[in-house]
């Protein structure tokens, strides 16, 4: 655990560098293969609309994987993440074009905890909607 950010250098309210993560249908096919989640709602729009979705949606776990990058890029060592949780509030809808969707993530230090740990609260937005709720990570700083 060797974070590059020092506990003494952050305050409650310190903002992390934001991240912007594009997702296309090709991204979802690749993620399906890597994660083993082949649910057709993530690649087959006929299936997705038949079960009441507006279109193909991104895997919630894909969005979760992108959001934590704001934290791991900040600290350098992903091994510094000690806790990470999210609520899946809205789907990321991914149209079948070459632009797809964009997941925009911001984060700020919400609390300084014991043992050089901080809690970071994350916000993830796509198409103007909050796609994750209660998105929080606890990170060990140096």
């Amino acid at each position: 655990m060797a974070a590059q950010i020092k506990y003494a250098d952050v305050e409650v309210g310190t903002e992390l560098p934001a991240g912007s993560f594009p997702v296309t249908r090709a991204t979802l096919v690749r993620y399906a293969g890597a994660s083993g989640d082949f649910n057709p709602i993530h690649w087959n729009e006929k299936f997705a609309t038949e079960v009441g979705l507006p279109d193909v949606i991104a895997h919630g776990m894909f969005t979760m994987a992108e959001a934590i990058r704001v934290v791991t890029d900040w600290v350098g060592d992903p091994g510094a993440v000690v806790e990470y949780g999210v609520r899946f509030t809205k789907p990321v809808v991914v149209p079948n074009d070459d632009r797809g969707a964009l997941i925009e993530v911001t984060g700020k230090v919400a609390a300084k905890l014991d043992d050089n740990r901080v809690r970071v609260d994350l916000t993830a937005m796509s198409a103007g909607q909050k796609v994750l709720g209660m998105s929080r990570a606890v990170v060990a700083l140096s």
């Binding site: 993440v81 806790e83 990470y84 949780g85 899946f88």
Partner: peptide, 13 residues
Amino acid sequence: VVHGDQKFAYTRP
């Protein structure tokens, strides 16, 4: 079934 919440607590990566 839909995925509602997900959380992890790590002892190590």
